[in-house]
């Protein structure tokens, strides 16, 4: 139904002897916010930089808005916005001068949004960019990536350096931009940072895509970490029955820990009547998801309704 804004097929990228991407396949659809999640060195920046023709693939095919990045050249890049993962802004020019210049390069597009976006992110445009804090530099990066309303925004760790309040403001902005017609591809190493905004995510590690799914399904498949402490000894038989569905179960005196998948209702019901002193069910974090994904090639149930 909707077309692909990014289509990557069998993408391999070597840096000398280092294989950074080892056969990445990925499709991002028009109008979605797509999260690209992976630990340090997974290959997120390498992938994004290939989409912008800053790097050339070793093998595989890449289509961005239907075009090969190299063949598309400036004409294609005019339709993209990019926030680099390691943004370095130097020189004595002010943020306003830099942003006006970047708008100039795009034939003036986006110039009118510099002031409102800066105001929204409490960015002082008249300070030399060199003297801005990391977070403020990041704001300059966000503004320049989105100001010209690109068809596709490629954002490499956009939330890094922003405090929680500004992260929220940023995510709100991303949603607005999406609603205004920008497809968004953003990377992060923390799923929780972007899961509220991403429609779908891919988990990447060691240059391969481990899982692609929508966030809710992934969450459900990931399960929750259970940590329960009893007030007094529970008969072993009862415990066995109650905790039968818990994976990776570890019992340590009065405390039991493990992974619970699925609805928490039945678990809580089965604990009823037992002397529970403390109960915690917490969403698992990304590292655990990725490790799982690698253990089974996909977490159980992921990809299925």
């Amino acid at each position: 139904m909707s077309t692909a804004v990014i289509a990557i097929d069998g993408l391999v990228k070597d840096y000398g002897d280092v294989r950074a991407l080892d056969g990445v396949d990925l499709e991002v659809r028009e109008g979605e916010i797509f999260g690209f999640i992976g630990p340090n060195g997974a290959g997120k920046s390498t992938t994004i930089r290939i989409l912008l023709d800053l790097l050339r693939p070793t093998s595989g095919t890449v289509r961005v808005l239907g075009e090969d990045p190299r063949a598309g050249g400036p004409r294609l890049r005019a339709r993209l916005g990019y926030l680099p993962g390691e943004l370095d802004l130097d020189g004595t020019a002010t943020a306003r001068q830099l942003l006006e210049h970047l708008a100039q390069v795009r034939g003036g597009r986006g110039s009118d949004r510099i002031a409102p976006l800066a105001e929204r992110f409490l960015l002082d445009l008249d300070r030399p960019v060199r003297t801005l804090s990391k977070g403020n530099k990041q704001k300059v990066g966000v503004v320049q990536a989105l100001m010209h309303r690109p068809q596709l925004a490629l954002l490499d760790e956009p939330t890094s350096g922003l405090d929680p309040l500004l992260q929220q403001e940023f995510l709100t902005l991303i949603r607005e931009e999406r609603d205004a017609g920008t497809s968004v591809f953003l990377s992060s190493h923390v799923l929780s940072e972007i899961e509220g905004v991403a429609d779908r995510v891919a988990l990447v590690r060691d240059g391969r895509i481990a899982v692609v799914d929508d966030v809710a399904a992934l969450r459900a498949a990931a399960g929750q970490r259970l940590d329960v402490t009893f007030a007094s000894d529970v008969p072993l038989a009862a415990l066995d029955r109650v905790l039968a569905g818990v994976e990776e179960l570890r019992i340590d005196g009065l405390r039991a820990r493990g992974v619970w998948r699925g609805e928490p209702g039945p678990l809580i019901a089965s604990l009823h009547g037992l002397p529970v002193a403390r109960l915690e069910l917490r969403d698992r974090d990304l590292e655990e998801l990725v490790i799982d994904a690698y253990r089974a090639d996909a977490p159980e149930g992921a990809g299925q309704p």
Binding site: G73, P84, D88
Partner: peptide, 17 residues
């Protein structure tokens, strides 16, 4: 120098040959 520090990223990803 700019390439090593990352400053070239914005210039080279802009719609300019």
């Amino acid at each position: 120098g700019e390439e090593e520090e990352g400053g070239l990223e914005l210039a080279a990803s802009a719609p300019v040959r």
